[in-house]
Amino acid sequence: MCDGGSMSWDLYIDKQIAFNVGIGTDKAIRDVAKYEMAWHAEGIKSAFGGSVKLGNKEYVVRPDDCYGYADKNWGSSYTTPWVWLSSNNLYSRISGKKLENSAFVIGGGRPKAGPLEIDNQLLGAFWYEGYPYEFNFTKALTLPKTQFRVVEGKNKVTWKIIQQTPATKIYTSIECPKKEMINNNYETPNGDILHNKLWCGGTGTGYVKIYERAVEDFKLEWKMVDYIEVANCGCEYGE
Rank of each mutant, 00 (worst) to 15 (best):
T165P: 07
N88I: 03
P111V: 02
C66E: 09
G55F: 03
A113W: 09
M1E: 15
P132R: 02
F19Q: 03
N20C: 09
E117V: 02
V83G: 04
V105Y: 05
V151K: 06
E100L: 02
P81V: 03
I44H: 02
Q164Y: 03
V150R: 06
N56G: 13
N232V: 00
F137R: 00
G50L: 05
L220G: 08
G202K: 00
K27L: 07
Q147W: 03
L116M: 13
T203C: 06
M181A: 08
G206H: 11
V61H: 06
K15L: 12
I182H: 15
Q147D: 08
Q16D: 07
R110V: 08
G50P: 04
E187V: 02
C2K: 05
I13Y: 11
E129I: 01
I17G: 00
W9P: 01
I182Y: 13
L90F: 05
T203V: 03
R62E: 15
A18G: 05
N73A: 01
E212W: 01
K160P: 04
K97P: 10
V83R: 08
C66G: 03
I94S: 09
D226Q: 00
Y59W: 12
V21D: 14
P81H: 13
Y171F: 10
P111A: 03
C233D: 15
M1K: 04
Q147F: 01
P189Y: 10
Q164D: 12
N232D: 15
L116S: 12
K179F: 04
N155T: 07
S51T: 06
P144K: 01
S92L: 09
E36W: 05
I29R: 05
R149Q: 14
V208N: 11
T158Y: 05
S86Y: 03
F218P: 01
A33W: 14
I106E: 12
A140N: 04
I13K: 09
E175A: 01
A33Q: 14
C200H: 13
C2M: 06
S86L: 05
